[in-house]
């Protein structure tokens, strides 16, 4: 098991109960959708994976390591095993496509020749060959998200976490981004994706977890959940 949640609850200091007794397991190589209305706890659950938030109660293991008991100094190594894709892309506007991807490798201390080899490889993989020297402002939304995905997979993560990656994109572009994510998943990367896009989930036939008011209301491995 790659990810294990045991009776995880999260109550924020302002009293809001974001997660209520969540238990779940995610296998290596899975593609998992997290669904639910806004405020259902999707973001909180995702933030716990890379320990931006700590649970109030319960245990979380990722690759057999307890994320809850982890020391502050161990957090960077946890995060290096993950890639994160954001709804608003979070690209650095002052850096080119290549530099944005290289940035992810530089900050984890990769060697120069590794960066030189890997950056064109991932840019090619996400279909942005020829745009290496463009700045984010010169790209379409779909292209920007491809840069975001390239950056997330540059360090060859075990898990790719995507928080509403198609939230800012139109349907056609969303489908292209999904195809890219499926192909990354087929190469062995586990993907956890939070989304509101029912059409995408319906068409995917992958495991879906529905959250409501901080609880799991359905966990369907076939994706044929009742809408």
């Amino acid at each position: 098991m790659l990810v294990q949640f045991y009776n995880v609850s999260k109550i924020y200091p302002n009293g809001v109960k974001a997660l209520d007794d969540i238990s779940l397991k995610i296998d290596r190589g899975e593609f998992l959708f997290l669904m639910g209305p806004s405020g259902a706890g999707k973001s909180t659950l995702i933030k716990m994976l890379f320990r931006e938030e700590k649970p109030t109660r319960g245990q979380i293991f990722i690759a057999s390591r307890s994320v809850v008991r982890m020391k502050r100094s161990e957090i960077p190594s946890l995060r290096r095993s993950m890639g994160i894709v954001f709804q608003d892309f979070k690209l650095l506007e002052s850096k080119t496509v290549s530099e944005n991807v290289a940035f992810a490798m530089e900050v984890v201390g990769a060697r120069n020749h590794e960066i030189k080899n890997r950056v064109p490889e991932v840019i090619n993989m996400v279909g942005l060959k020829g745009k290496e020297d463009a700045f984010p402002g010169q790209l379409s939304g779909g292209e920007q998200q491809r840069v975001g995905i390239a950056r997330a997979i540059a360090n060859q993560p075990l898990i790719l976490i995507a928080d509403e990656p198609t939230g800012n994109l139109d349907i056609d572009t969303s489908n292209e981004i999904m195809d890219l994510l499926y192909s990354i998943n087929r190469k062995g990367t586990t993907i956890i994706m939070a989304t509101h896009a029912r059409e995408i989930v319906k068409a995917a036939h992958k495991r879906v977890i529905m959250l409501e008011k901080g609880r799991i209301i359905t966990d369907d491995s076939s994706g044929d959940y009742a809408l």
């Binding site: 890379f50 100094s73 960077p76 995060r79 290096r80 994160i84 979070k90 992810a104 900050v107 984890v108």
Partner: peptide, 13 residues
């Protein structure tokens, strides 16, 4: 701050 946040999430010490 955005850049720092990003660096933290990517796994910079």
């Amino acid at each position: 701050r955005k850049e720092i946040y990003l660096m933290k999430l990517i796994g910079a010490t």
